[in-house]
Design a protein around this nucleic acid. Structure first.
Lengths: 201, 201
DNA sequence: CCAGTTCTTGACTGATCAGTCAAGTCGAGT
DNA sequence: ACTCGACTTGACTGATCAGTCAAGAACTGG
């Protein structure tokens, strides 16, 4: 019933693209509306505030873009070491793809916004924490599997999963700062060395 | 000659404090002026723009607060492993101190602003890159020393230094996101494990 | 075809933004 | 003691900010 519209989806996509490529604070509601081809009145019909839009855009990005990739990367049928390798490769591939199509290594959108807004918006902070927690959980499960089958030298899977995740965030940040996706090639090397697993093809 | 003033220093300190605790974009020139007790006209007497102030504040922060600590932490007379331990401890100590006095784990100011403004201001990006490079250089020298005297298992000191630095940035970000300085305790453990050096007191 | 609901439109608010400026104040060097 | 350059002051600009609103347009279910 009522009048159908795709404005909501267009706003979510535009918000993600702009915030990811720039920053939360530097992107205005007007910017998002222009990019989405939607008038501001419509914006506020769908979202009560810019903050709400950002939270929704993150949730949408996870469900639509990240979850499917992670399900494939961390599929239980794969050997644990291969899952970790696929994870590193997926990060490299995504950042390189964005670099080639948009001219900038964008880094991790959750980390960027979390770093920018963590002390300023409790809602955004919690959302980012939630998103990153999901990634860490997948890593932890993988490390536990690798520990069990002896393919990895891991003492404390929970701590090591957080360590790997921190390393990935840090290297993504380096790549963004130097605007060079090739920096991310080191992620795979360093991670495998860290797990004392022999490096595969 | 002319009229003496400490407005410049007060502006640099206020800018660092506000930007570090919040973000670059969320801090206005007016905010900085109020915090420094300086009128806006004086601000623009000393700095041509907000961007210039930020760059100067970073340089000042490095020279006044960080350089002296790093000189002590990475002093060549110390055993390399001890230098690394002192580096981890210094990071923990600084973040914890800010947490206790201001209520928030602030993270690394260079990383936060670099992440926020890297794609938006080439000058800020370059400044942050410069600051972080200096830290990586100290690490690299230490790893080379540790490699030479056999106290560390390091193959490629340059790559490993970048890796350690990325790990520190990542864990600082986790600590900021969870607003819990104790997260940073894992830095020392993970770093020492990564260098395959036995953990000291 | 009509009634009810959803969505769109464009003009509007008041606050805040970075940055400007001219006139005034102060003090150090002579 | 006076002058000249360095600093201060407060009022100002025009742009942009997030968010509001009332009126109308378009679709659907009955």
């Amino acid at each position: 019933m009522g009048r159908p519209s795709d404005a909501r989806d267009k706003l979510l996509q535009a918000a993600l693209d702009l915030i990811w490529a720039n920053s939360y604070g530097s992107v205005s509601v007007d910017d998002i509306c222009v990019a989405a081809g939607v008038k501001k009145g419509s914006f506020y019909h769908f979202f009560p505030s810019k903050e709400d839009l950002a939270v929704a855009a993150f949730e949408e990005h996870w469900a639509r873009d990240i979850e499917p990739i992670l399900d494939r990367v961390f599929h239980p049928d794969r050997p644990p070491v291969e899952r970790i390798e696929a994870w590193c490769d997926a990060i490299y591939a995504e950042q390189k793809e964005r670099f080639q199509t948009r001219g900038h290594v964008p880094g991790c959108p959750f980390a960027s916004v979390g770093s920018e807004m963590g002390t300023l918006s409790e809602r955004l902070r919690r959302k980012v924490e939630d998103m990153l927690e999901r990634g860490i959980f997948q890593l932890e499960r993988t490390l536990r599997d690798g520990q069990r089958d002896g393919s990895m030298a891991v003492v404390d899977p929970a701590a090591k999963a957080r360590c790997l995740h921190a390393l990935a965030m840090g290297i993504m940040f380096q790549a963004k700062l130097e605007n060079d996706p090739e920096v991310l090639r080191s992620l795979r090397t360093q991670v495998l060395e860290l797990l004392q697993a022999p490096q595969g093809a």
